[in-house]
Design a protein around this nucleic acid. Structure first.
Lengths: 330, 330
DNA sequence: CACCCTCATGTTTACGCAAACATCACACCA
DNA sequence: TGGTGTGATGTTTGCGTAAACATGAGGGTG
């Protein structure tokens, strides 16, 4: 900066003013400074800037994995929105969903240059690790039921599941089987609860849930179990990938979809439209989730508030070819 | 820090020494300082640290999207390895693969607190934008042919494609059709070139390529075109998602896989094992790519060198149920 | 024509930390 | 017993920036 100032024949403060777009710099001076900057390849040092300003203009995102579609799409949306607001994103992956893992990440986060954190995971893992968030670091949580203690942004899991199950019942199925995700997952539990509630409210039999772990393979295994049950005519899967596995299992066992069995998923990943048959599924608006997260976090940062509460992002059912009335021979 | 020093009854320098694990602090003093830190909730300010040390311990990752499996898995691996080395990851998404987009990201990067950058995209987009990388910011590139100018880490695209095509020829197919990715993609072009070369070397007819854009939908469209050609008995798709689309198209047109047509993919995404039928595909070792990227970048940062060259990460063919000899009626 | 006000620009300072150097106490040896 | 060395701790300084305050030139007004 001093070099630029010297070359432009001004003081370093004037260089600073130009760099920050201050108004009270005469056009000719501004141009000289910009010239000098260009010539010397000057770039402001963000460490010094952050030190002086007391903020990093950076948001940390803490998560277990990018491997699930939901996470990676949420992160992408967060990154896009953050960039839009002039914030950078720092990724903090936690190796395993263990207490130690989470704690480790947050210890690092404490030293990390972030103004706030978005947590994409179950909040009970934070609690279990007895985490005290570094003071001054604001938090927004995704995929959690901690709306009473933290600001939470989430897809409206319950409503999405309700839509899918009701859709199947309305097609005329007696009941709907469910392939659920891991028990630790809040989204998974919420979807299962909504599924059960709809069935109970409609006075239907509630079949035992088939437990999966979000992967297509676990869906396949669940599907094999269900394929053996001739009364099973409708299956609601907690995500699209498990639905893919279910489709494969049904196919291998000679049960046609949707003629013999209807299958619905959750997420609406791009591939779902190309499954065999194209999958009826619940569409999640990840972009909106990302937007709300960043907006909520920046509000907190700017106003130094922390208001617990949950923002729910609506879902929509996308009807494709994997659901039909029972006994439909097409 | 001054507060901690006061409370512990030592100088701030001693606090600094404790915080950085220096040796020459007597145990009793160290404990006092740690106590004071705990009590006051002290955590080092990373901006000041970075300013003093002249490094950020942060790596920037610049990319177009996390939506493709390859990218998100590479990023995940990079993040894991970086964390292992005590580095944080800053994500810089570029909205569109246009010159402006890339330039914008790098301008921001210049101000960003990073010691180095990993670029997950075509290097010609950097060139097209006439980018001068900020001095002092080291670069490693993924998915590019710029090995003569930048250090490049990449999956061995050519060998992977060769394995897939040879596998199909060895099964007895006269030739192999190809569904390729976008022309701007280096991986895509490299896979296509290897496909063509294997066919030519074997003296086979080289059918026209079917152009896709990595999505399952584009694969579906390509598949519809190929399904109409009765001489087409083997299809090599440049990624698994397009293969998914091809499978759907073949299915809809009544062409059985692998009895009538064999299909192979590339990537080995987890879902591929659950396709109908389970997909024969080329396995990419994304974790290794991430490891090599970080390692290479840190080497550069630490030794202030920049050695162009390409590190190729080997691939393996995973044979599943989507390929078989031609005319195989199972 | 003197005064004051405004606006462009310069000077000083502090942000929090850690390297470099300075100091001091104590132990050991001749 | 004085000298010397060693290791623990304190003091000074500067990293690059921007806020706060200082300066000074020019223009307008009575």
């Amino acid at each position: 900066m001093a070099d630029v100032a010297r070359l432009a024949g001004v003081s370093s403060q004037t260089v600073s003013r130009v760099a920050n777009g201050h108004t009270s710099v005469v056009e000719s001076t501004r141009r000289q400074v910009l010239n000098a900057m260009q010539q010397l390849g000057y770039r402001p040092n963000s460490a010094a800037r952050a030190l002086k300003r007391g903020e990093f203009r950076t948001i940390g995102v803490i998560l277990f994995t990018l491997a699930t579609t939901g996470n990676s799409r949420t992160v992408e949306a967060i990154a896009a929105q953050a960039a839009h607001e002039g914030y950078a994103i720092t990724l903090i992956p936690v190796a395993m969903p263990t207490q130690d893992g989470v704690l480790g990440a947050f210890t690092r986060l404490g030293e990390l240059a972030v103004d706030g954190v978005i947590v994409i995971m179950e909040v009970h893992l934070l609690d279990a690790a007895n985490l005290v968030l570094p003071p001054g670091v604001q938090v927004v949580v995704v995929d959690s039921d901690a709306g009473d203690r933290y600001p939470v942004v989430d897809t409206d899991q319950a409503d999405g599941a309700r839509q899918a199950v009701r859709h199947l019942l309305e097609l005329g199925h007696d009941t709907v089987h469910h392939v659920t995700g891991p028990a630790e997952s809040f989204s998974s539990e919420r979807r299962a609860l909504a599924w059960r509630t709809v069935l109970e409210d409609a006075g239907r039999v509630v079949p035992p849930v088939q437990r999966g772990d979000w992967t297509a393979l676990s869906g396949y295994e669940a599907g094999l179990r269900l394929a053996g049950d001739p009364t099973c005519t409708a299956i609601f899967c907690a995500n699209d990938q498990m639905a893919l596995g279910v489709l494969r299992a049904l196919h291998e066992r000679g049960r046609r979809v949707p003629a013999d069995v209807s299958v619905a998923g959750f997420d609406d990943i791009p591939d779902a439209a190309s499954y065999l048959p194209p999958l009826t599924t619940v569409h999640q608006d990840f972009a909106e989730v990302g937007r709300q997260c960043v907006q909520g976090l920046l509000d907190q940062i700017r106003h130094h508030t922390r208001e617990p509460g949950t923002v729910l992002v609506p879902t929509t059912l996308v009807e494709r070819a994997s659901t039909a009335p029972p006994g439909n021979r097409r």
